[in-house]
Design a protein around this nucleic acid. Structure first.
Lengths: 310, 310
DNA sequence: ACCTATCATGCACCTATTGCGCATGGTTAT
DNA sequence: ATAACCATGCGCAATAGGTGCATGATAGGT
């Protein structure tokens, strides 16, 4: 119920370029340009200035965007309360999630909703966490399941979002099947200090988790190889190129020459998986039910894999 | 920046019928009907129910409308703050006012704004106080100068508006020129207790003022005639049909056979003239400047007519 | 210093939203 | 029973708002 052009402005404020805004909102660049111009005309404010080959928010623009956070939140709250009060049904529901999270958590959620609310059309978008937040702002999705990351551009207390912890997905070690430690049940990070490690590229989502885990135990691992996909990493490990960390939610599939070991000791790395919604919308019945389902799914995942007793 | 359809719903919540909403917003009844239907579709809420030959808000609808008050106010605040922060100029400004108020206060305001802000298009609408509030809700006007009335449908603390007192316009007595008291400078209400009074129709804007004035001094006046226009009332008085109360701002024009006397004593009736704006918008520079001009104009009116010393 | 990639934006064209007028059907009041 | 009133559906027209391409401007690479 907030004017689309203001939403567009907010997305622009995030990504800084008309083209990116267009890509994110689903409009063409021309449309975004026109919308922003219209917005300025209607409000009688100059919100943008030319800056090099791009455009940049003016002070007024930044002010407006900053202030609109509470406005959006207020609307979401109102909407949620009205839905609650009149127990109305929503017609569309957009979900966003990242790789394994999407597969393991979002798929059951979508399936459940599809059966409990037949006339609700659920749409799932796979996207990385940062983009999920963008999609939330752009109102393309209503709920995102992502991996919480420290030092992200989106803080945990961003006024635009509300986040709920779903589960801590522990990281396991994967070893070549012929590795000396492969027969063990568990292993500590210290025992693997001198191994050649296979990790993601520096700066990627999980790389910081990787380093954090080792700094916690005071060890500096040697990074031998880098991979971007879990599958690739597993293949590398299977080829005997080194060892790696794999979230427990990520399936090992049919990698016969790779074993998965749980980590014990004080360095027990985990990735925190959270659900994020637009601030205010959390009171919505649909969001509530979804969070409930996600929590239950998360619990089920943790209990059907009874580990981590220490 | 709030969706037009929500504005329309709010207007509908005021007047209760699609036709009246159409008249107030400037749309056709079909358009209002379509807008409300669209709103329900987009939000996925049932906001209206058939009720006899009309439609009625559902509980959800009422809830939404009630909650939207703060949303609108929040937006107005944000808009005002942004205008203030970036000292931007507004392009359109709608004023509403009632009869003498409009003439005496709004006309100077419009004239001043026209000279100080040449590229601002000012629109003045004459409308009665109740309609002025409706027009504010409908966003047809941005500022209204009205006569404050107790027991109106719009309370002084309505969450949708903010009101500023401009002046208390005292009521004078008008007498036929040949009346025994006509030569006096001042008169008390008690002295006129037994006169035949000419007033507006019961239930009208000023009738309550009339009765309030007399109950204050413990006198029950005899109402002989009723008129709806000041001019008519003055003509009645001129014809010797009785006496009446006339706001000081209302000009006597060329009524040669009528004299105007000030009222002394403890019953000194006055009509309170206030400016009303949508809540939140009061911080806007344009509104601020307008209120300033109105206050000054009101002061000038009161001082150039130096009276009321008791 | 040129060339190229990148961006925003204007223009021409098109679509579909959206508003209006009129007619219809349902409902209350006389 | 008839009349008045109200909301709404339908056909039609206008226009707001979309896309795609071309243009102009700028930064960076060579």
């Amino acid at each position: 119920m907030i004017d689309q052009r203001l939403i567009t402005l907010r997305v622009f404020a995030r990504c800084g370029t008309v083209g990116a805004t267009a890509e994110l909102t689903g409009y063409s660049p021309s449309a975004v340009s026109a919308q922003l111009r219209e917005l300025q005309r209607v409000l009688g404010m100059q919100l943008l200035t030319k800056d090099g080959r791009g455009v940049r928010l003016t002070a007024t623009g930044r002010f407006l965007v900053a202030g609109s956070d509470t406005l959006i939140a207020e609307w979401e709250t109102l909407r949620a309360a009205a839905m609650e009060a009149g127990d109305q049904v929503q017609s569309h529901f957009g979900l966003g999630g990242f790789s394994t999270a999407a597969a393991q958590l979002l798929a059951p959620l979508a399936a459940t909703l599809r059966s409990t609310r037949p006339l609700l059309e659920v749409q799932v978008l796979e996207a990385n966490p940062s983009r999920c937040f963008d999609l939330l702002v752009a109102e393309r999705i209503d709920l995102a399941v992502i991996v919480a990351m420290q030092s992200d551009t989106y803080g945990e207390d961003d006024p635009r979002f509300e986040q709920t912890v779903l589960l801590d997905d522990p990281l396991d070690v994967i070893l070549p099947a012929d590795h000396p430690l492969a027969a063990r049940q568990t292993v500590t990070l210290e025992e693997l200090a001198s191994e050649p490690w296979i990790t993601e590229a520096a700066g990627s989502t999980y790389h910081s988790l990787f380093t954090a885990a080792f700094t916690a135990v005071g060890v500096t691992p040697r990074i031998a190889h880098e991979a971007v996909e879990w599958e690739t990493q597993i293949a590398f490990v299977g080829a005997g190129l080194g060892v790696g960390l794999l979230p427990r939610l990520a399936p090992l599939h049919s990698a016969e020459n790779v074993v998965r070991l749980r980590i014990t000791g004080k360095g027990k790395p985990a990735r925190r998986i959270v659900a994020a919604v637009r601030r205010g919308s959390i009171a919505s019945p649909l969001i509530q039910e979804s969070l409930d389902i996600l929590q239950k799914t998360a619990q089920r995942i943790l209990t059907t894999r009874p580990e981590d007793e220490a």
